[in-house]
Design a binder for these strands. Sequence first.
DNA 1: CTTGCTAATGACCGCCGGGTCAGTTATATA
DNA 2: TATATAACTGACCCGGCGGTCATTAGCAAG
Lengths: 207, 207
Amino acid sequence: MSAALKPKFRRRAEARPDEILDAALTVFTEKGFDAARVDDIAARAEISKGAVYLYFDSKEALLRGLIEREVAPVAQRLRGLADAGGGDPKATLRMVINAATQLINDPRIFATPKLVLSVAPRFAKIAEFYRKRVLDEAVGAIAALHRRGVMSGAFRDADSDTVARMVMGPIFMYAMRKHVLGAKDKATPQARADAHIDILFEGLVRK
Amino acid sequence: MSAALKPKFRRRAEARPDEILDAALTVFTEKGFDAARVDDIAARAEISKGAVYLYFDSKEALLRGLIEREVAPVAQRLRGLADAGGGDPKATLRMVINAATQLINDPRIFATPKLVLSVAPRFAKIAEFYRKRVLDEAVGAIAALHRRGVMSGAFRDADSDTVARMVMGPIFMYAMRKHVLGAKDKATPQARADAHIDILFEGLVRK
DNA sequence: CTTGCTAATGACCGCCGGGTCAGTTATATA
DNA sequence: TATATAACTGACCCGGCGGTCATTAGCAAG
């Protein structure tokens, strides 16, 4: 008990807002928006509750700030996958399904969608924001990919929005089952992705 | 303003618990579990808050009671559709997708799943209960249907769980988008179901 | 060292909402 | 009409949490 005695707090953090949002994401995800106390978030960020209110006007502002921050990288990733894969729509779609199936396994990646879904009934603005900036983007990207595939003759013609739902729906449902309802599964992500691609590409019916 | 003067309250309702649960479902769905006040629920059931506590120990008990009551009919419906459709797996699956696509449009039908999803992070027991009694039942029923189809030569062989996810996932995703995120769509349920069935049965790839 | 400023604290307030309970009103019985 | 009892009310309590603010701790500059 000699040299250390770390200071009661450190000053001048431009990094503070981000640290607070990190803490908020963790606590909101663990407990849900209402049950999470601002004190919890402050504690997790290792500052006092008062300090939180230096950077954010209210608990709700914390939520909005968090979701806005989290949307950007997702949107970017989505745009990336739309353009990726060179000219081969089949290969690209395969890649997309593989990547999404892998990524969704990570609880941290699914944390924000999960949070948005849970607060959506009470915060219509947030719901709309997320729908337009994430869901519609994703659906649009996959639909566009499908249409390119139809043009190039790789895919049969079909309703592109439905195609998007058949790509994302099963993955989304798996995520909900695992991260929200707490199910464990035996199949590896790779096996799931392979089966998904096989059925989606070849269909269910024996020819 | 003479004869009526309706009594301040009516007595002896064996129907009370059910009326309260009806009110709870409405209010929980509108506001979410935490934001819903027991006073709100009482008001909606046209009784006082005190009366609610004559029938339920706590707000949480209200939630548990509600979900337990709502699970039974869903499970029953699932079992029904699994057995229906005579011997033709293709026709049965077509029917299942059609029915599910139609049913999910009704906000009241999706209300409980939506509620469960929103409280699941905080009430692990409820999440598990719902997962086993509803989700696993549904997945099991569809998987069994698929396996029957493989036996009879109607379907190609594939991982049955993945098949189940490809049947339910797109429908579930549509429901979330509509009932949770508040999206409106142009396509009719029939059109969506038809496209879903077409892609699922025939596959995406041009032969 | 002093001064000035900002980052941060932590004790505090007020209110909201879950839960209680003494009292009141309807009903059954006779 | 009188009595007993079950159903119900509504005022109340109290703990917890969002939000505030006077005060203090750290830092930079002269």
